[in-house]
Amino acid sequence: MWKWLHPYAEPQRAYRLAGKFIPWLSILAILMLLTGTTWGMVFSPTDYQQGDSYRIIFVHVPAASMSMSAYIGMAIAAFIGLVWQIKLADWMAASIAPIGAVITFIALVTGSTWGKPMWGTWWVWDARLTSELVLLFLYLGVISLYASFEDKVLAARAAGILSIVGVINIPIIKYSVDWWNSLHQGSIKMTGKTAMPPDMLVPLVINILGFGVMIGALSLIRFRSEILARNGMRPWVRELALAEGAK
């Protein structure tokens, strides 16, 4: 049943296949982020409580939610790599980690610059903020573990175990605002009396999806470089290197 998948587990095919998706995902990500951001920044109504400071939401929430999704993606790839010993999955996990770290950093900084005018402080050590900071450290841990072994099979195993164990942090981030008292507001409601109006919700959802597509495109670009870096001895990579790398 899974036989048709097998050829894609070959590095050269995966390299080519990833290359086909990259331009489309990139264009889609740019279009979505332009639409969502322009809509949110210019056309969405001003919030009755927070004024225009709430417009930070159109970068903060996409970054924060995608920092968690990217982590889950990385952990799934690491799990596949660890259990079935598929190197391509390990390389995908290694490709996602730096992107996730930057997205998490953006979530923390934009949250901080939103917290200052609304809460009166850049930072509090409450559950939501602290667990998101832990997420950044998890990403940095995965990156440095992967980088610190010369033997990349061993490196991927060490980094993979850390990323799988770190998944425990994801539900803690997600439900922290329900489980503990926090300065941070609760989850956005889609329905009911306190639901977010469509003029704010639609551009927000567009930006969340846009961030997701952008992370997908960047992951594939890094994945391709990672395939090349790990297959430097293969003839097809050597040919490519001598043709392109010599310039």
């Binding site: 992107i99 930057v102 670009i221 470089s225 870096a229 050597r238 392109e244």
Partner: peptide, 21 residues
Amino acid sequence: SLAILIGFTLTRKGRVLKEIA
């Protein structure tokens, strides 16, 4: 930060290939 990430991501392939070459 996104621009820096994208910059490093786009130039990595060239760096890797140069090293292999």
